[in-house]
Nucleic acid binder design. Structure first.
Lengths: 338, 338
DNA sequence: CCAGGTGCTTGAAACGATTCAGGTCCGGTG
DNA sequence: CACCGGACCTGAATCGTTTCAAGCACCTGG
């Protein structure tokens, strides 16, 4: 019913012109006190809600940005999203979250949708590591920032140095005196898995032997399977420290070790990656490499507003690539004799 | 630059009128083949993207719905969201996810935003169990469906019977032969905690003793704390089975038991609630009460389209309240001698 | 040769809010 | 008294798209 209340109705009810109603809405100070309160009560009475489409059509700029996420169920992204929202709030923008769910097609559809809505800008973690295909992006001129990915000089991006993260884990385990190492992770079509492995390899090289246990995906089930393979090795050659490409694998590995009565950390030290909430909640709290998720989100939103501002004032914008360094959170899964 | 390409520009480039461009966009069959391809290549060349605000302004109805979630980081809601999206897709709608993050103020702001966008409808899990205050909802006439909450006859809603879930857990533990029970959960300002407890109490009453271990929140840390209290009881009086108000508590409890060398399930059987992904991934896989999350989402979106359709065709709409029954997923944390 | 189609295209109105160049009124000033 | 400036308000133009009555060109059957 009242879904059709427009400024015109309000104006009629208050006995003023539409221009005045708009002024009450947008520059209350230009309106006389008496008139203003008359308009305000008319708004109240009729249940008027401004039609953003019309406002936006005229104004040309909306007050929302979109964040197109790879997997809304992944705690990593929800934490990033929180950072995004926070920064957007500070800038007076609202965030629409969209979930591509790892599907190229959905990604494309949602991008299209966001562009049609003429959002102020878009944050996206593309399905393809290579970034969002140029083709997918009409030259619409909406600023886009890549999150947890890099796309060269053509894009603003915020990412984390995964090679460094792998090195961190490796150096720590070497310092702890281990000499037989395992890397659990795959498929290596995932760039981040490759990076983490290469950092790790670099750190443990020369300090001992590295066994690679490839997995088909970054899941708990795959972690368990890798655990079985690990347990099947003769104890004399079995690694005493394992670095997993993410926490889900690490949790699966831990679970299998518990089941097979291989003690963690005494028989096997485990390091995960991502430091998801459940890493600390595991039976044996998990040592893990933590990425500044919240900060990633904040920074991404800030880069976006920066680019947006430049874009709107016609200033030339220099794309920036921010890379954060992860940190190692040490917990019981690697500390013997706790 | 090209962000300002409008139908007018396309029309000029193709040498036709704006009406024809619109027809190519919306009813291609009414346009001659030659003209159509001319227009299409002009669209392509100029990188035209339809301005949804203008389209919507004229058409009066958008193709999006909003899902205002209580906590985007909670796996429960992300799973529900997936169901919502799926059903929305089937209905040709897109979903904007908004996160109230348990803040009444954010909830209000996002609702306002969604209404201003004139979304087709809104799904919401309100911060206040009592539902979204009438006051917060201008009589705008946008259909609203409550998710994981009920709000009486005034609202469509989809929820789960928590009393039944508690009973399920209780009956199962009684049948398993336990006689000393614990309930871990709180604060009881949360209606769902109350319901789960009351169902559980009803089931174990008469079959043994029930110890209540209240917690201040539904977190892993609180679960650990409750575990310490439990462990402090003399073994002769200590419960042999614990029902936790959610999985996080259960994981915390399990973790503490592991630490204190109290064996699960032999010394203590544990039942959680929600069956989050990590329940199955725990050191000892967790028996848990599972809610049909995906189905909840689907149904909510379907109720919404139902209401929307009625609303638009002016038909009287009868609000419906769908209540699902949860099921018990039995895993090792309650099965002795595995 | 005309009436009546059919197929395609046009042009203007409409959607709802914002903006801005004026209008009105009023008190103050020279 | 005439003029001015300020405070307040009006009304029309505008944004980009859709819709629809109307127009045009061509054809077909009588």
């Amino acid at each position: 019913m009242s879904s059709s209340v427009s400024v015109k109705d309000v104006a009629a009810a208050a006995g003023v012109s539409v221009g005045t109603v708009s002024n009450v809405l947008n520059r209350p100070d230009r309106v006389g006190a008496a008139t203003r309160s008359r308009v305000e009560s008319a708004i109240e009475k009729l249940g008027f809600v401004r039609n953003e489409s019309a406002r936006h059509l005229r104004a040309g700029a909306s007050r929302t940005i979109g964040y197109l996420v790879l997997d809304a169920a992944n705690p990593f992204f929800t934490d990033v999203a929180r950072g995004v929202e926070e920064a957007a709030r500070d800038a007076g923008l609202a965030v629409f979250l969209c979930n591509s769910d790892n599907s190229r097609q959905r990604e494309h559809e949602y991008l299209e949708l966001l562009f049609e809505q003429r959002v102020r800008g878009v944050l996206v973690t593309p399905v393809d590591p290579g970034g969002v295909g140029r083709a997918a992006l009409p030259g619409i001129g909406v600023p886009v920032v890549l999150v947890d990915r890099t796309g060269g000089d053509d894009w603003c991006s915020v990412s984390v140095d995964d090679v460094y993260g792998g090195r961190l884990a490796g150096e720590y385990l070497v310092e702890s005196g281990h000499e037989r190492f395992a890397f659990v992770g795959g498929p290596d079509s995932i760039g981040q898995v490759q990076d983490r492995l290469s950092g790790f390899r670099g750190a443990v090289e020369g300090a001992g032997v590295l066994t690679e246990l490839p997995t088909a995906a970054l899941t708990v089930a795959e972690g368990r399977a890798a655990g079985q393979r690990l347990a099947g090795m003769p104890a004399s050659r079995r690694p005493t420290a394992a670095f997993c490409a993410n926490d889900l694998l690490a949790l699966g590995l831990l679970q299998e070790m518990t089941r097979l009565r291989i003690r963690v950390p005494d028989d096997l030290a485990i390091v995960g990656y991502d430091d998801i909430e459940f890493a600390a909640a595991a039976a044996v709290p998990l040592t893990s490499v933590r990425q500044p998720r919240h900060q990633i989100g904040r920074t991404a939103a800030e880069l976006l507003t920066e680019e947006t501002t430049a874009h709107e004032s016609g200033v030339e914008h220099q794309h920036r690539q921010v890379v954060y360094l992860p940190e190692l959170i040490v917990r019981e899964s690697t500390v013997r004799g706790s």
